[in-house]
């Protein structure tokens, strides 16, 4: 169970870091050439970070929900079930990387033509749905297991 929470927080966090990193590199490059665009590029950079937050949310739910913080005993079957329930939340983190790619591509396009800001934002957010669904699946499963 600790493992589930840890993984749910750590893996999306790492990949989110990579996603934000990629977008950040592109944003920095654009900002160095055109400082006026820096703040709008920043919006793109934040987007891949949400997967990390979702991971944290799932992890925190597991910690709180199972009373882990209160030092309650956890049986092996429940622990395993929680771990299985955490899988979507863990794996959703990997969507941060493609989202980072899309974000930096959008920043690149935005640098060339400022009017594609809104469409670029849309392309980037498209990826996020699957992360949200992952988090959702975990929350629902946790609810049904009764670990919430």
């Amino acid at each position: 169970m600790v493992l589930a929470a840890g993984l749910a927080i750590a893996i999306p966090g790492i990949i989110s870091g990579m996603g934000v990193g990629i977008a950040g590199v592109a944003a920095a490059a654009v900002a160095s050439e055109d400082p006026k665009k820096a703040y709008k590029a920043f919006v793109f950079e934040v987007l891949p970070g949400t997967q990390g937050i979702y991971g944290f949310v799932a992890g925190f739910l597991i910690i709180i929900g199972a009373g882990l913080s209160a030092g309650a005993e956890v049986t092996v079957p429940v622990g395993l079930a929680v771990l299985a329930a955490a899988v979507p939340a863990i794996l959703q983190g990997f969507t941060a990387y493609p989202q980072g790619l899309v974000a930096s591509a959008s920043i690149t396009a935005f640098a060339k033509r400022p009017e594609v800001f809104a469409p670029g934002l849309m392309y980037t957010v498209m990826v996020e749905l699957y992360a949200i669904l992952g988090l959702l699946a975990t929350i629902l499963m946790l609810t049904f297991i009764g670990a919430l």
Binding site: I53, Y54, F60, L61, I132, L136, I139
Partner: peptide
């Protein structure tokens, strides 16, 4: 319809992080 479920997921995420900060 599934896509609208993000409304709830984002809401919960806000709530949980706020709760975590307080906690």
């Amino acid at each position: 319809a599934a896509s609208y479920s993000r409304l709830m997921a984002l809401g919960i995420a806000t709530g949980i992080i706020a709760y975590a900060i307080n906690y």
